[in-house]
Nucleic acid binder design. Structure first.
Lengths: 320, 320
DNA sequence: AAGCGCAATGCACATATGTGCACGGCGTAG
DNA sequence: CTACGCCGTGCACATATGTGCATTGCGCTT
């Protein structure tokens, strides 16, 4: 067992998965082919699923007319993944379920030789907790915006998210050890010239997927940025003054999607929206009606190509 | 039910599938969300699977060293899909199982706006019987080679295969109503100038996927072509004389993969191997060791990009 | 060589899922 | 208006699957 430490297990799991999912054999039958017990087969299959040897996708046939996804596609030109959640569900559970779905939907998007940039926040945290393993090679996860602030280094929180993604995909994790917001924009400018930082920025520039939630001061569950001590009263005032409706990776924008001339952005560590828009796949996860204003703004800004959203909010989006 | 004749069913099935596969709810839980009984949910999920709303893939992680697939990839430069089948399995069951796997593996390959060319024969027939539904749009299936001969029109057989593919994918079916082999090559030349025929040839030329088995005179289960009255004694002699080891869609080739100067090919209705090689994805399904010589020849000819093959035969392929 | 600990295995039971059958609604033909 | 027949549904049962627990085998330590 030293030389093939589980390699046999993978082999068996793969074979079991093939027999089960591709040939419709029952576990009993597989057990006899594998000369083992049915229980072991059950466990092997479980292993195969957890481990990403089996990938299950739910595809919406493009023909279902006027489904919400299509309406969203028409109106906003993006691909929506609407997560069914009963309306009665509490806000927290709702986020949890959207996050779980997001984690599953994400799987097929990411693969070997890719780089995924991720933001941090309650939403991403939830997603990270539901990731299923999927082995990839030569892939990396890069943090989009800094996480430390005046009170904490924020490292525990953000890096936990990062490392969950890293281990789930077997990807190299590239942290971004800078504050979320600089006190002085000039510090940022200077720091941005450092080679160590430029290396990260360079990686960000070449990412294949960006994954983020939306920040919103008005959310029922106010976003992490707004309650974590990242902003002081002056900052809040400044934001209100600039008509900010939300943020993506600590970069703020207005209802019309514009993000220029918002002073806070000069101090933010996140990627500018224009930079973000160069990424070929930009996945946004949203749960809860209270994020609607932020969502509309983000749509106007065109920051996303894919939207994973709970049913009720999707509904409100196309209704209102 | 008149206006959405099953549209609701699809909707529900989709939702159920989402809840089941993406959110890990139990059928019981889904039943209550859907205000129906657990049984109905079970049925809905079954429907979702049959209907292609759910797609399940088994992926071989690229890292498993020296697996058969990798060895094949190295040696022949193609992607192999090895179907696990116990060695003790009878030849017929083996074909059946390979065919079932092939049908499942094929699903993800084919999609809307694509054209798939298919040959006919025992292998393809078996595959066609195991296809899972998958709705696509603006897609078509085109027959690669004629099927009628001196004795029968061959239409029942080939067109049954064709239509199974057509209905499974909701694709337009383009038959190719010509004999498998012409008595006189000049007839073919003349006919090939007809617009109706040229239309089909044109479609073939633009196909995105080609799917075929291998013909072999020496197979345990001799291929359909060799026993269906398509060839007479003289033909057989001619083939032997030309050192033919097998055929793809009634186009013959030698062990070294060459197919020129084989007189029969001038009379065959199938696409020349060079034409075939222009298709971006060329999937070959093989079951049974007796097809090995034909397989080696086909590999030498480079006609395939993907090979779906049973385990034992794959083994022999890399061993010998 | 005996003892220890870890991981894999199978058993037996608990759950979850699949399906034949009978019932009831609804549209249609008579 | 009634009879007929076709779904769609849920029930109850049959199967199939998941999992805690005790056992076994194996490698390593003492």
């Amino acid at each position: 067992m030293a030389e093939t430490p589980g390699g046999d297990k993978v082999r068996d799991a793969l074979r079991a998965a093939h027999l089960y999912y591709l040939q419709d054999l029952t576990m009993e039958a597989i057990a006899s082919e594998l000369h083992t017990s049915r229980s072991s087969v059950s466990r092997l299959l479980g292993f195969a699923r957890d481990t990403g040897l089996v990938e299950i996708q739910v595809k919406s046939p493009a023909d279902r007319v006027s489904s919400i996804q299509d309406r969203i596609k028409e109106r906003f030109g993006i691909t929506a993944h609407v997560v069914p959640v009963p309306d009665s569900t509490a806000e927290v559970d709702r986020l949890e379920r959207v996050a779980m779905s997001a984690a599953r939907i994400l799987g097929p998007f990411f693969d070997s030789n890719m780089t995924m940039g991720i933001a941090w926040g309650s939403t991403l945290s939830a997603v990270s907790r539901h990731l299923q393993e999927k082995v990839t090679h030569n892939s990396q996860i890069v943090q989009l915006n800094g996480a430390s602030n005046a009170r904490t280094t924020g490292i525990g929180y953000a890096s936990e998210i990062m490392s969950r993604f890293g281990t789930a995909f077997g990807a190299y994790v590239q942290q971004f050890p800078v504050p979320a917001f600089f006190d002085d924009p000039r510090t940022k400018e200077v720091l941005w010239r450092e080679r160590s930082i430029r290396r990260v920025l360079e990686i960000q520039k070449h990412m294949d997927i960006a994954l983020f939630g939306l920040g919103s001061a008005y959310a029922d569950v106010p976003s992490h940025v707004y309650v974590g001590g990242y902003l002081d009263d002056d900052d809040f005032q400044a934001l209100t003054h600039s008509d900010v409706v939300g943020d993506v990776a600590t970069v703020f924008y207005r209802a019309d999607g514009s993000s220029d001339d918002i002073p806070m952005n000069a101090r933010s560590s996140g990627p500018s929206l224009s930079l973000l828009s160069k990424v070929s796949r930009r996945v946004c996860v949203v749960s809860g009606r209270s994020k609607l204003p932020a969502l509309r703004g983000a749509l106007a800004a065109g920051v996303m190509t894919d939207l994973i959203i709970d049913e009720a909010t999707a509904h409100s989006l196309v209704e209102g």
